[in-house]
Design a protein around this nucleic acid. Structure first.
Ligand code: FES
Ligand code: FES
Lengths: 152, 152
DNA sequence: ATAATTACTACAAGGATACTAGGATATGGG
DNA sequence: CCCATATCCTAGTATCCTTGTAGTAATTAT
């Protein structure tokens, strides 16, 4: 009955979740057309602005967003929402999903004698597949009840 | 190129992996029929015996194994290998797979206004499904090239 | 008895996460 | 040209979880 302990098993990092939420918010605010300031997103999503800065710096490095400095500046999408997958965002934040250190020959010396590494490879593939097949655009569509919300 | 950083994103804990490897080893050593001492498993799998003790205490609490004390004692399976799923073992070690703190109404105050929690629920379901459909018996069969290794 | 082996509890080192802080740099509007 | 507004960049830090280690008690086959 007591699972209040904050487990870290199989968890997506807060950074990754913040990133996804923030990009989602960015898009809803029109960030696919014009730059939006981080302060707005931070307030809307109730996330520390300073922390968001770091997150968006990483997103920028991965070309997921573009930053424009100075007054009236902010961030906007660096590519169409349709071509930004969750996997890509998570990769930008924390690198590839790991699952276990030891399903690759290089990182585990027990690899050859271990009969169960296929297990972790399989799980990783399952997770990667899930994350690869959902895009920011999907989030948007889901939010609007499946209807295409593009008002051009 | 540099992903040597030990990320914890989406990772299965070492404890869970040890548990699965150890049960697997236990079965291969005949632990479905007679008790096997932890020292043997610890040596075979190169895992700290003291750490294994704690792991098997948890497994015992979940009825996955039974312990018999004293000389010639050890641990043996508490139920058929066919009915021990990976999910169950992981649950015994670290509780339920979490993925994110915030896909339940109770644990996130942003829940109602958050449009993407279905994401984490979906991922959790995917992972749970994977882990629920693999049993210790499956590991055994895989190790023996798909053949049924039961020699009754 | 005694050696073997589990049962139980406490504690410690290390590392990653989730931030906070402070400044440098650039830019549009007045 | 100023200045408010923003991004850009680098350090530092508290906290928590993981991954063990250690010691001791209880139990049992021989
Ligand atoms: S590959 Fe590392 S223990 Fe299985
Ligand atoms: S449910 Fe917690 S932020 Fe989405």
């Amino acid at each position: 009955m007591t699972f209040e302990k904050k487990l870290r098993n199989m968890k997506i990092t807060t950074k990754s979740r913040y990133a996804i939420r923030s990009i989602f918010a960015l898009v809803l605010m029109g960030g696919d057309k014009q730059p939006i300031a981080l302060t707005q997103i931070a307030e809307h999503e109730d996330i520390s602005r300073k922390y968001l800065e770091q997150i968006f710096m990483k997103l920028k490095k991965s070309k997921i967003v573009e930053g424009s400095r100075g007054a009236q500046g902010g961030y906007m999408l660096g590519k169409p929402a349709k071509s930004i997958s969750l996997k890509e965002v998570i990769y930008a934040m924390d690198g590839p999903v790991k699952i276990a250190d030891c399903h690759q020959e290089e990182t585990c010396d027990n690899f050859s004698s271990c009969g169960i590494n296929w297990l972790w490879s399989g799980l990783k593939e399952t997770v990667d597949n899930y994350l690869d097949n959902i895009t920011i655009d999907d989030l948007k569509r889901q939010a609007f009840g499946g209807k295409d919300a593009d008002i051009s």
